[in-house]
């Protein structure tokens, strides 16, 4: 049974990959868009450090590492096909998926993994290119415990991001206006998860309030762990992200159950 499931997962992964190859121009153009956003933050921070050694308690080397690492982690955490789900719900195509002899959520999971691996491969390549061309000074973390905690935090970030994005897609069961909440979610991710700047440069009260939301746990926390090393403070923050994993899971599950029970469609 396990072998059968694995075979199906691999087959779906191959189909996904084949789909990307069909729309390869779209994928390449998407990557061009992503790297342009990296250029802005990379050069903006480089310009800031032209006349100083340190700002906001970050050295030039730390901030360059932060910008490049958060780019790669962001690609891993945010790349997702789950937004397609809302379209499938609205046009009824989800019925085809639900009737297939393969659990729907396994299918979704396989698509997510393929998408993330592909985007991760390209983002590592792009960051490598930036390092090669502009030779920024970088900080290398060698402590195994720190790296393990960072990987754990990345895993949590991926799961929280997936469940929230999944829940937003499920809004399509009841409303055609999914793009609004998704736009807000993407905007909040861009600005509140530390893509432009490390969140701890914010005023203390705002920073502490922000830690109560899920946003810092997507990409900021893993990047900070890498830079600062293992500490119990960060272990506690990983604990908070675990709470968000549980909350987002139960929220998404409740929406899915309710939505699938009420869903009906004609004409397919």
């Amino acid at each position: 049974m396990y072998n059968g499931l694995m075979r199906k997962i691999l087959a779906i992964a191959k189909i996904n990959l084949a789909q990307y190859l069909v729309y390869r121009l779209s994928f390449v153009l998407w990557r061009v868009r992503v790297i342009l956003s990296l250029f802005l933050t990379f050069f903006l921070w480089s310009a800031v450090y032209q006349s100083r050694l340190s700002i906001f308690n970050y050295s030039h080397r730390q901030i360059m590492t932060y910008i490049l690492l958060i780019y790669v982690i962001g690609d891993l955490v945010y790349s997702s096909r789950v937004s397609d789900l809302s379209i499938q719900i609205r046009n009824g195509a989800i019925i085809n998926q639900l009737l297939k002899p393969f659990p729907f959520l396994h299918n979704l999971f396989t698509r997510e993994v393929t998408d993330k691996l592909l985007n991760l491969f390209f983002s590592i390549f792009e960051v490598g290119l930036v390092i090669l061309l502009f030779k920024p000074a970088l900080f290398i973390q060698t402590d195994i415990l720190t790296i393990l905690l960072m990987l754990l935090a990345i895993g949590m970030g991926i799961v929280i991001s997936f469940f929230i994005s999944f829940a937003i897609s499920l809004v399509a069961f009841w409303s055609a206006e999914v793009w609004g909440p998704r736009f807000v979610f993407m905007t909040l991710i861009t600005v509140l998860s530390g893509s432009y700047f490390p969140l701890d440069i914010l005023p203390t009260l705002f920073y502490r309030l922000l830690l109560l939301t899920p946003f810092p746990y997507f990409t900021y926390l893993p990047t900070k762990i890498f830079l600062d090393g293992f500490s119990f403070q960060y272990l506690g923050m990983v604990g908070i992200s675990l709470v968000w994993v549980v909350l987002s899971y139960f929220f998404a599950r409740a929406l899915w159950r309710k939505g699938i029970r009420e869903f009906s469609f004609f004409g397919r």
Binding site: E177, G180, P181, F183, V184, T187, L188, T190, V191, Y196
Partner: peptide, 19 residues
């Protein structure tokens, strides 16, 4: 799409203010 408009404006405002 009144609800969508509200979300859209809110998102734009947040992005503008944060940057």
């Amino acid at each position: 799409h009144k609800t969508g408009v509200l979300f859209f404006m809110f998102g734009k405002l947040i992005r503008f203010l944060m940057f």
